[in-house]
């Protein structure tokens, strides 16, 4: 077991995920359509209804489309993380997850590799989305497109780790609808992706507090600031800690001696 073995396995897992993504044209297109519909239709419709004050990182008044673009980047990563989670459950049901789990590498490494592969795909999707948004005249400073990369990697890792954790709890594919209703939608709508925190506070202090502690909000803010060449330290630490918590929990979930698989009953 040497470093080369780890590298080859990591590359194999990442390559497989990227290859599958690129060759599955429908998946590629549908991953882009969702945020673009939000950008072109939802944002256009709400532009006049939602007034936005000047707040960091923006230095002037901005269009609503500009405001929600980082949120939609986060949305791509959130859905991608859940898609990875769904595919893990599917792979486990179909048995192909077993192939990965019985190879002679530590389980944490295999899960991390799978996670990195998913993050690679989501970052690719975000950049394609940002390119389309650029043609729609939603432009960040050039350097912002470089600064946003580490932010996207960290937010992708955090949301992917959440997906991994959820997949360790879900035994059957049918149960996945619950994840949509109880995780994705509340996380997305109770965040700063669509409206700033102060707007939420005007309506409900309780919702404002929930949104503030929502890790997805912090990931979106990390992306938002990075896209304008700034670092939001609070968001960085919050997202980092959330990633560590989710990842460690996911590894425990997939550990044979502690995991959920055995507790939920075996193959018979």
């Amino acid at each position: 077991m040497n470093i080369l073995h780890y590298w080859r396995a990591l590359w194999g897992i990442v390559w497989r995920e990227l290859f599958r993504f690129v060759t599955q044209r429908e998946r590629f297109i549908s991953a882009l359509v969702r945020p673009l519909v939000w950008l072109f239709v939802f944002a256009a419709g709400f532009r006049s209804a939602l007034g936005l004050a000047i707040s960091p990182p923006y230095e002037t008044y901005i269009l609503y489309e500009v405001y929600i673009t980082p949120g939609l980047c986060g949305m791509i990563q959130l859905f991608n993380g859940m898609q990875s989670s769904l595919s893990m459950v599917y792979d486990r049901e179909m048995g192909s997850m077993r192939v990965l789990m019985v190879c002679p590498l530590p389980r944490w490494f295999l899960l991390l590799s799978k996670l990195l592969a998913g993050v690679g795909v989501s970052v690719l999707q975000v950049y394609v989305f940002l390119a389309v948004a650029w043609f729609y005249d939603i432009k960040a400073p050039w350097l912002g497109y470089a600064y946003v990369l580490p932010a996207l990697l960290l937010s992708g890792l955090m949301l992917g780790a959440l997906g991994l954790l959820l997949s360790s709890f879900i035994k059957q594919l049918e149960n996945f609808a619950g994840v949509m209703n109880f995780v994705i939608f509340p996380m997305f709508f109770m965040s700063t992706a669509l409206y700033p925190l102060w707007k939420l506070q005007e309506s409900s202090v309780f919702l404002h507090n929930l949104a503030q502690y929502n890790p997805f909000s912090q990931a979106v803010e990390l992306i938002r600031f990075a896209l304008y060449g700034q670092l939001n330290q609070h968001a960085l630490y919050y997202t980092l800690v959330a990633f560590i918590v989710f990842m460690v929990s996911a590894i425990i979930g997939y550990t044979p001696s502690k995991g959920m698989m055995v507790k939920k009953g075996g193959p018979g």
Binding site: N2, A9, W11, G12, W15, R16, G95, S96
Partner: peptide, 24 residues
């Protein structure tokens, strides 16, 4: 395994290369 655990969307060669990568 009892169920087929090959990736249907990959070729035979790609499936086997994936396995060799996992085994270093």
């Amino acid at each position: 395994f009892q169920q087929t655990t090959l990736d249907m969307d990959l070729t035979v060669l790609q499936n086997l290369r994936y396995h060799t990568a996992l085994h270093g």
